[in-house]
Write a protein that binds this DNA or RNA. Structure first.
Lengths: 348, 348
DNA sequence: ACGGAGATCGCCAACGTTTTCATGCATTCT
DNA sequence: AGAATGCATGAAAACGTTGGCGATCTCCGT
């Protein structure tokens, strides 16, 4: 059916070995025959069968990428970065969405690991121990997660949080809320820790609120607790949660940023699309994807070097419309909750 | 390194062929040995090498999925559907983002087609002719695009548009705008055509406005034309465009839905998260992904049957807060454009 | 008791490629 | 001039799996 290396060999009047060499080790064949072989290969539309090649070389030319939830706009951005860099390097990428399920995650890793040269685990939900059982099995790079002796790409959370808190304290806020994400999330623990460290240093009081799903609904659910906490500003685990807060605040008639400032994390595209536009700490999403692929490729090229290369990428506070000066009456008295026009929440 | 079929064969005291049969054609081996083989295979952690299998069977067990832009929240939803169904059927999926570039699209199809059993093209940007050159090369299913004699999965655009227009005319709107998407997009042509057909039937006047990028910025750019067109309601090519409209209307002090009703297409998750929540025609996103995989799999199982199976999936109008009764003064006189707090537009 | 059918299983070729290893030949050194 | 080197190429083995073919054995009908 498809054109094989033998077809090319016959057409060019050489052996199969020469065809291979002409295409993958050009220095080893006579320039004249090399060109001839390449021309006939091109004219016949020959592409080496990757399965056959993989069988002998042990390399598939594929990368695997696992993300917890493509529905969270953060991840498609990372995926785009991974895609772009991988295709540049002539790798194809398997994508798997684990639906926030750490058990499924492990299963998928196992299934994918035999078909790829290396894996990228983006914000994996599994525990450190589970993660450790996977390491050594397959070359592997973590994105948005740190684990000793495992290569990873992470944003500078601490600095991002510092920018956020500095921005708020400069605006006069002294009592700041942090709406926590999933307890099992490494990123959440990291952000919470940074928030404590940074706000202590800045002389601001930090109120930690709940632990919610990293989604719009989580923010909606936490909003009333935020209001009850008597803070003048709130930092959300991520942008989706911040949008949930914003939505509920609007419904309850709380003015943002008049009564309360709201700050997110991630800078997903729609952060700039809502009203008021969301002030947020931009994480290097596509860049993380690219950097992770780079790390993985150099790990594949040279397996025993740099047992745990780690890259930290800079973050950037995007000041938009959801943050403003602290109100003069520090503890706003919101109207009692009404069953407000929330809009039917979420897709069917 | 890895455990091969020979290891299992030796450990179980049988030949390699028997191992294969025990695992893939259970009926052909004695129940006792079958169980023994399966147990030893499991205990050794044996998984057949898919490359080797693919070499001989000609099947890879992989599917390819091409999308134009993962940044548009519509596509991650489709991807999720594809993922889920493919994994159920024990297929892995290659994902490629073509960045709205039809040339890259063709190249990627060519590159992927040799590594997959079949391809899913989601809203392909290429022309009909380009598309035709690809068909026959590889089993292929179109999502969100119709082409004669090519299997496809599409939403019932006409009915969706009918629901949208009926909703608006019931609210008293008689002059309705349609903000068009990319001219090269089949989905756009289809929606525009449906809009004309349906509004004519409903006795409403349709004003077609521009042709914009299918993104937030496109909506922002079209908003002022919409206001100038003197319509009381506007249907956008998709939700992102609708959100762009909404944002610019808010900035110009136009009340939605007081002065103007806005209606989108797709029902991306954030349509319900903004304020006012967006009324929109929900397309079966995940379901399209699943249906496309189903179609592709049955095409692979039985190549010569049903040369052009086609599935049309129902749509559903989601009435939220961005549509309301037509204003009594049909042509609102908006305040002149001010340099309003739009929020920095889009990601860096 | 014999032939044949059916069940069960092993042998071996094949898939398309890469990679040693060996070969032929021209060139250069002593 | 003979040997040693280098280059360019071909032959063949190997990668892990599957599937056709045939061998063996059991069982049944006649």
């Amino acid at each position: 059916m498809a054109v094989t290396i033998k077809d090319v060999a016959r057409a060019a009047g050489v052996s199969a070995s020469t065809v291979t060499r002409a295409l993958t080790m050009p220095a080893l064949v006579h320039p004249e025959t090399r060109d001839r072989v390449r021309r006939t290969a091109a004219s016949l539309g020959y592409h080496p069968n990757r399965a056959a090649r993989g069988l002998i070389t042990g390399r598939t030319g594929n990368l695997g990428l696992l993300v917890p939830d493509l529905g969270n706009p953060f991840f498609p951005s990372v995926v785009k970065g991974v895609q772009a860099r991988a295709h540049e390097a002539d790798y194809a990428v398997f994508l798997a969405d684990t639906d926030e399920d750490s058990a499924a995650e492990i299963g998928l890793v196992r299934k994918l690991s035999q078909q790829v040269d290396g894996l990228l685990l983006c914000s994996p939900r599994m525990t450190d121990d589970e993660l450790r059982t996977l390491v050594g099995d397959t070359p592997l790079v973590l994105v948005n997660r740190r684990l000793a002796r495992v290569p990873s790409v992470i944003p500078e959370f601490l600095d991002g949080m510092r920018q956020a808190v500095s921005h708020l304290t400069a605006l006069g806020h002294r009592r700041i809320g942090y709406v926590a994400g999933p307890r099992s999330s490494w990123a959440n623990r990291e952000r919470a820790r940074s928030a404590r460290t940074v706000s202590a240093a800045a002389g601001a009081e930090l109120v930690e609120i709940g632990s919610v799903a990293p989604q719009f609904e989580g923010g909606v659910a936490a909003a009333d607790q935020v209001l009850a906490a008597g803070v003048t500003a709130v930092i959300a685990y991520n942008d989706l949660v911040a949008l949930g807060l914003l939505n509920r605040f609007t419904a309850r008639g709380v003015s943002v940023p008049g009564d309360l400032s709201v700050l997110g994390f991630d800078d997903i595209p729609l952060a700039a699309m809502v009203h008021p536009a969301l002030t947020t700490v931009a994480l290097p999403k596509e860049q993380s994807g690219r950097a992770a692929v780079d790390l993985l490729l150099q790990l594949l090229a040279d397996p025993d070097r740099s047992p745990a290369a780690r890259r930290e990428l800079p973050t950037q506070l995007m000041v938009r419309a959801s943050t403003g000066p602290a109100p003069v009456h520090p503890a706003p008295k919101p109207a009692p909750a009404e069953s407000a026009p929330l809009g039917s929440a979420g897709p069917p």
